[in-house]
Design a protein around this nucleic acid. Structure first.
Lengths: 137, 137, 137, 137
DNA sequence: GTGGTCTAGACCACA
DNA sequence: GTGGTCTAGACCACG
C-alpha cells in the first residue's frame, strides 16, 4: 500500500494521494516503469471511491509524473525533464519556500536554524533514496 | 496596509489575512493594544468583500489573537510567545521542508540551488518587513 | 452561449468545452479578465452535469488558460507567457501537425496544397480576431 | 515493419495500426493482394496484445481495406482512390488546421514558425516513407 | 482485467 | 450566489 489518507486534515483526498505518489517517486520507493496500484485496487485499499483515485492519477499524469495506458494501467515515468520553464519551476519553489518562511516566522524559528534544518532534511531525504536502492539488488 | 492578497495562490483570502495579521503581530508591525483597520477599511484597501474580512477577524478572535470591542473596533491582544515546545515547532517545520524537498526534486532543482533560493527568499522576506516598519517612524 | 456540444462525435464532452473556450480565447471572442459562464449556468445551457463543466474548467486552469477564484467565478487569463519550455511547445505542435499530415495523406492532398491551405486558414483566423476586436469599441 | 506505435500519444493503439496500414497502402508500401503480417507476428513486433492487432484487422476488414482468408491470412484489397469530393476533403483538412492554429496561438508560436514547422514535418514524413520503401528493393 | 467519461446528488468553502 | 470535493453507480474503450 502506497498511501495513507488523513480524512481529518482538510486536505483533499486526491491531493494527498498525489503528494504521496510524488514522495514515493522522489525517494525511489517506486521507479521509472513501475506500475502503480490499479485505480480499483487503491480505491478499495483506502476505502474511497474509484473516481477519487482516478482524479489523483489524472493530476499526476497532467504533471508528467506518471503515464497511463488505457486497459493496461498507470506507470511511473522517468523524470527525464520537466516540461516547465526553468523560471516557472524556481518560481513555484519560491512560493513554497515563502510559505515555509512565514511558518518559520510564526514558529519563531530563526533563519540560521531554518537553514540548517533544510540541510538536515536534505540529508535525510538522500539517505531514504539510498535505502530504497539497496534492497532491489 | 497590513495585508497583501495573492489571488493566484489558491490559499483562501480570509486565511491569507489571518496569516498576515499573525505575521504582522509577530514581527512587531502591530503591537498589543493597537487597533486593526476596520472591516470596511481593510475590505476597500484589499478590494475584497467585507464578509471575507469579517470572517478573518472572527477567526483571529476565536484564536484569541485579537479582541473586538463593540463600537470601537478590533485590537491586538498580547500573548506573543509561542506555546509550543521547541521540538514540536521544528518538527512541524521539518514536515513542511520535506514537502518542499520533494517538490524541488520533481522540479529538478538541485540542492545547492534550493539552499540559495531559501537564502534569497529570506532576504526578500526581511526586506518586506522593513518596508512595513519604515512608515511607522 | 459559448459552446456547442456534439454528443455523437465521441470526443469527450469536457474536452469539447476546453477546445471551444480555447478557440474563443484565441480569436478574441473573450478577453483577459472576462468572466466565463458559471459552472452551473453552462451546465444548464448545455444540459449536461455540473461536474462535466467543472472538469473542463479545471483542465483549462491547469493549462493556465483561465483563473478560477472560489466563490467568485472563472476568468480568462492574459496569455502572457506559457509556462512550458519552448522545445515542449514546438514538440506538441509538431505532434498535431504530424496528425494533420497523415490525414492530408489519406485525403490525397498534395503538400503544396496543404501548405497553401494553412496560409488560407491563418488569414481567416486573423480576420476573425479583427472582427471580434472591432465591435468592442 | 508496417506500424510504429506511440504509447504517449493517447491515440488508441488499434487505431494507430488502422491508420498506419491505411497510410502504408496509400503510399505504396503495400499493394493490392499483398499479405499483411500475421496477427501474431505483428503483435510480437510491436510488443502489444494479439487482441489489439486482431481488433485493428477487424476494423480494417469492416472498412473493406483488407480481406481475411481463412487459414492463409490477411491481404490488402484494391480500391485506392478516395471516394470523397475534393471540396469535402479540403474542408475536413481545414477543420484540422484550424484546431492546430488555435493550439499554436495558445502555445505562443508565431505564424512563420508554424509554417516552417509544417515544412519540416512534411520532410520528416517523406523521409520515413523512403525508409519503409528502401528495404523492399 | 485496465482506465475514462458522465450523471446524480450531497456537502463544504468562499465572496 | 460562486467553485471544489466526494460518493455511487452506469457505461464505454482498451488489452
Amino acid at each position: 500500500m502506497i498511501a495513507r489518507i488523513d480524512f481529518q486534515s482538510g486536505v483533499p483526498v486526491y491531493l494527498q494521494i498525489v503528494q504521496q505518489v510524488k514522495a514515493a517517486a522522489a525517494t525511489g520507493l517506486i521507479r521509472a516503469g513501475d506500475p502503480l496500484p490499479s485505480v480499483r485496487a487503491m480505491a478499495e485499499d483506502l476505502r474511497i471511491n474509484r473516481n477519487t483515485v482516478a482524479r489523483a492519477y489524472a493530476e499526476l499524469e497532467s504533471e508528467s509524473v506518471i503515464e497511463t495506458r488505457q486497459g493496461s494501467g498507470c506507470f511511473l515515468k522517468d523524470g527525464g525533464a520537466s516540461p516547465l520553464r526553468k523560471s516557472v519551476r524556481s518560481g513555484r519553489l519560491a512560493e513554497a519556500l515563502d510559505a515555509v518562511i512565514i511558518q518559520a516566522h510564526h514558529l519563531q524559528i530563526p533563519d540560521p536554524e531554518l537553514q540548517s534544518l533544510l540541510v538536515e532534511r536534505l540529508e535525510a531525504f538522500h539517505l531514504r533514496q539510498k535505502d530504497h536502492q539497496a534492497p532491489r539488488d
